[in-house]
Design a binder for these strands. Structure first.
Length: 439
DNA sequence: TCTGGGGTCCTAGGACCC
DNA sequence: TCTGGGGTCCTAGGACCC
């Protein structure tokens, strides 16, 4: 049997851990730059706030309504979800972390007649120790487990844990589940299936395998069909290292000068290098892309991506920033207002042994840069991200007297909560607020 | 005024090898 | 008149996931 543990309204639940006063109220969490709504509390969903709507439309669509708004705070979410995963590590025989808010669990070794109770206990422990609600689905394959978790979330009678372990329960669950909610059926396939008369998961599962093959000629959707019918065929993910790593952001406003663009790209490059080092890998290709604002049809548009191969694969922040800069120089065109940029590293391989090029830097230089990166990583882990950065990563701005001033972050986060779990300064601030309120 | 940020996999077609 | 039978690698495009 498989299980999936899914954190309910993940980002909102994280914010609520430190704001119990918001229980029962509509809450939303925004994407970077306070752009779109990316998470909603149940109350916000009931109000009709759709996922993905731009924040600026919220006031227009829901005038005069009280909605608690938070900017995204990924350090906080990473910390809290990590605590949930460490509980799952203790409770489940084996698991695979599928995303920030979902964990697949392999449940061989737990008796089937004890599974329901095991799931309910897991929910209770997470709720008690971290303060966040999770929904658990149990089934003979991952696709059905996902459907079970949706049922667990929807109906309180399941006590946060729903198990599909009989033919009767399987058919009942499939008949309840709209085709577009099936894991692996996206917007396109859902539209096609609905046009063919498949409204629920059961409608689709009842077709013959041959029909699925002829209609779609795609192995993934065939596997989904098999799993809906009870087989276990979707491959289990390895804890594989990433094959490409991308860091990209939309800007707060638009940028047309090269210098500012370079500072942003340097930051993304440094972040990619950091991610490479975290999984003990190196990359051999550095790519950069640039976008103008596609919503501004009145402005000239430009989109491009270029890449460059490295002589020696590396995870060095300095080398990757330098390479990204060379690519950016080729990519950059005057006269456009850019809205978004990103860095992608590819050709990822193990950290050692690295094939060294005969004419590249000597081993001593490489060692030196590696030690520098290690120190930077350590400081940033201890004191919070971007406590220390390379010069190229620093944003500068002319002040009133024409003098350059350095500032830390270019992303707009007007409604950010403090980070009481990761930053002492924030813990102290929060405690002070609580004290003040008490008095 | 303001519109997110990551990833993976599959398939088809072309270039090239013997 | 007749024109083989394998392969690999790369890229682009289109799906999907959270």
């Amino acid at each position: 049997m498989y299980g999936i543990a899914d954190l309910d309204n993940c980002y909102v639940s994280c914010e609520k851990v430190f704001r119990p006063d918001l229980e029962g109220k509509p809450i939303v969490v925004l994407s970077n730059n306070d752009g779109c709504v990316v998470a909603r509390s149940n109350e916000a969903k009931k109000m009709g706030i759709k996922a993905g709507i731009p924040y600026f439309q919220l006031a227009q669509l829901f005038p005069g309504q009280k909605i608690a708004v938070f900017s995204s705070n990924y350090e906080l979410y990473g910390e809290l979800t990590g605590r949930v995963v460490s509980i799952i590590r203790q409770e489940a025989p084996a698991y695979f972390r599928y995303s920030i808010d979902e964990c697949f669990m392999y449940l061989d070794g737990i008796e089937i007649d004890q599974l329901q109770e095991w799931g309910e206990n897991l929910h209770n422990r997470v709720k008690r120790e971290v303060g966040m609600p999770i929904s658990i689905g149990l089934a003979p394959n991952k696709t059905l487990a996902k459907i079970a978790s949706k049922l667990a979330k929807k109906y309180a009678a399941y006590k946060h844990c729903c198990m599909i372990d009989t033919e009767y329960k399987r058919e009942k669950a499939l008949a309840w589940c709209p085709i577009e909610d099936v894991w692996g059926i996206g917007r396109r396939y859902a539209a096609k299936l609905q046009a063919l008369g498949c409204i629920t998961a059961l409608d689709f599962a009842k077709h013959h395998k041959e029909w699925v093959r002829v209609t779609f000629n795609n192995i993934n959707i065939e596997r989904t069909w098999q799993e809906l019918n009870g087989e276990d065929v979707v491959p289990n993910e390895e804890l594989a290292k990433k094959k490409s790593i991308c860091t990209s952001r939309s800007f707060n406003g638009m940028i047309s000068d090269y210098e500012t663009l370079f500072t942003h790209v340097s930051n993304y490059a440094a972040r990619c290098a950091e991610k490479l080092r975290m999984q003990h890998t190196v990359a051999s290709i550095v790519g950069v892309f640039l976008n103008t604002n596609m919503f501004r049809e009145d402005l000239p548009q430009y989109w491009n991506f270029m890449e460059q191969r490295l002589v020696t694969p590396t995870s060095s922040s300095i080398t990757i920033i330098q390479t990204a800069d060379e690519v950016l120089k080729k990519l950059f065109r005057e006269g456009y207002q850019y809205k978004k940029a990103g860095v992608i590293v590819m050709g990822i391989g193990a950290e050692s042994p690295i094939q060294q090029d005969l004419f590249d830097m000597n081993a001593e230089q490489i060692q030196k840069m590696r030690r520098l990166d290690e120190v930077i990583d350590r400081i940033n882990r201890m004191h919070g991200t971007e406590t220390i950065v390379l010069g190229a990563q620093q944003y500068t701005q002319k002040n009133g007297k024409g003098k350059a001033e350095v500032f830390a972050n270019a992303i707009k986060h007007d409604f950010r909560s403090p980070n009481p779990t990761t930053r002492w300064a924030d813990v102290i601030q929060l405690n002070a607020k609580v004290e003040k309120k008490k008095n």
